[in-house]
Design a binder for these strands. Structure first.
Lengths: 182, 182
DNA sequence: ACTCTAACTTGCCATTGACAAGATGGCCCC
DNA sequence: GGGGCCATCTTGTCAATGGCAAGTTAGAGT
């Protein structure tokens, strides 16, 4: 993970990633500008290139971080399938910027080995979570479960859901997932 | 819908929208450039501004068109709930560019009256489709149905699904939706 | 102390979105 | 049939961006 010790800036790589998350969380991925991130970090406009190569490189790092955060969230949800689904939604809402990048492969290098590894790790957790519950071939159940939580999270984040769903995404998600796995 | 008769270009507005769909379908929404669209249409770089104001204006028109196409697709699916869900996925896959823009409100003016109207129309069709089938309060069922088809479509379009799901998104979607409404 | 290299800066260029001001051409109405 | 009118499109310009090249700095190892 390119662990960098303290250098000129302190930890520019991390600062840039954090700033990117902040910008995207409030203005969406389209508003992201490397030069703006550099300004926020107090460095020159070309400094980001040294750590990430280009914009896609920065987003690749963000995606990898995102898949790791997702795996962490899923692990923390325990053994219950419903809880795992709720955790997926919770991750998407809480780490909206990461989530949006992760599933937009045109923005980053999806074949990056680090990203691929993290993605596989998170995918394993999802599938074992489903297999633990349902006796049948996990294929359909896993796909249905993934679809329903991913869809709910995406719709919630895009603001497409009507207000009567309520203010708490995780509570609403629990209800919805329970409809699939009663 | 601002029906324009033949003028200098022929129908620049339509040509620009078509070109935008083409570009986004193969390179994603981030690759969209007004100047590139103008070049493809054979007009000057400032011509698009006259029809759409700015980039968000063009995407607003695209989103409105998308919601209308979605409504059309849902209407064409008939009365069956499963068919309606499959049609949703079919629309998302077939009109990928429209679909991506529609659910990315940071890219366009979601409060545009024309968009809002088209969105409402499509939403009605979705909800009545669900209410027709399930006796219970349609809230949970409708949300679950929307989530599962939207999630499947999004995952399919982002290339996140494993190959064993097969090559036909609509067939796979039918299986998944049937899992929710046996 | 000296070097060597990672981390950063300065400077540059092509592209883009947006705006302003002007040119063009078809259509209406007398 | 001709003159005005307005939507349509063009030319020109500006600030911002991404990316590249070449130079500078600082800190770590020996």
């Amino acid at each position: 993970m390119t662990q960098s010790r303290a250098y000129h800036h302190g930890d520019l790589r991390r600062a840039l990633l954090d700033a990117a998350v902040e910008v995207m969380a409030e203005s969406g991925p389209a508003a992201l500008s490397l030069r703006d991130l550099a300004r926020r970090a107090g460095v020159s406009h070309a400094a980001p290139a040294h750590h990430f190569g280009d914009k896609a490189g920065l987003l690749t790092a963000l995606a990898a971080q995102g898949f790791e955060l997702l795996a962490e969230a899923l692990r923390g949800a325990g053994d219950d399938l419903i809880d795992t689904g709720v955790a997926y939604v919770g991750f998407a809402v809480r780490h909206r910027a990461h989530f949006e990048v992760m599933f937009r492969p045109d923005l980053y290098r999806a074949d990056d080995p680090e990203v691929a590894a993290a993605r596989t790790r998170a995918g394993e957790l999802l599938r074992t979570g489903v297999a633990r519950r349902t006796g049948r071939g996990p294929d359909v159940d896993a796909l249905a479960a993934w679809s329903i939580v991913h869809g709910f999270a995406t719709l919630w984040n895009s603001g497409a859901l009507p207000p009567r769903v309520g203010p708490d995404p995780e509570a609403a998600a629990r209800t919805v997932i329970s409809r699939l796995f009663p």
